[in-house]
């Protein structure tokens, strides 16, 4: 991948992860306060998440204009792995052996498809 494509790919990872984590934070806050869905609209996290996903849309489109779709969809799968690591670090989510194995396989697959191996 070119430098520009790599930059878009990395931005996509950051935005996707930040978007999902923000949604998770908004949902947790709603559960903790037993608030309604409508009250969630006042949550800053919800709007940060929406902003991240809007930007991600633009970044993903720019990436697709530079590299083949088949390659993009494969290297984009790394988002799953990064999100699970972030969930573990920030929300103490469980990582069992099966999950760690799956994450390693996905990372290896991304490296293969991206031409790193």
């Amino acid at each position: 991948m070119s430098t520009l494509a790599t930059a878009f790919w990395l931005s996509n990872i950051v935005l996707d992860t930040a978007g999902h984590l923000s949604f998770k934070a908004a949902a947790d806050k709603k559960a903790a306060e037993s608030g309604s869905w409508l009250r969630m609209l006042h949550s800053v996290y919800l709007w940060i998440g929406i902003a991240c996903f809007c930007l991600e849309f633009a970044v993903w489109f720019a990436l697709l204009s530079l590299i083949p779709l088949s390659q993009a969809v494969l290297v984009g799968s790394i988002n799953i792995v990064v999100l699970m690591i972030a969930g573990r670090l920030l929300f103490r989510e469980r990582l069992d052996r099966l999950r760690v194995g799956g994450m390693i396989l996905i990372a290896a697959g991304v490296a293969l498809a991206g031409g790193a191996i």
Partner: peptide
């Protein structure tokens, strides 16, 4: 390389789903 990568990724996704189903 792409096909091998795809096979790894799909297997990984299935493993993650099995783990989710158990949790």
């Amino acid at each position: 390389a792409k096909l091998a990568g795809a096979a790894c990724i799909v297997t990984g996704i299935i493993m993650l789903s099995l783990s989710e189903a158990r949790a």
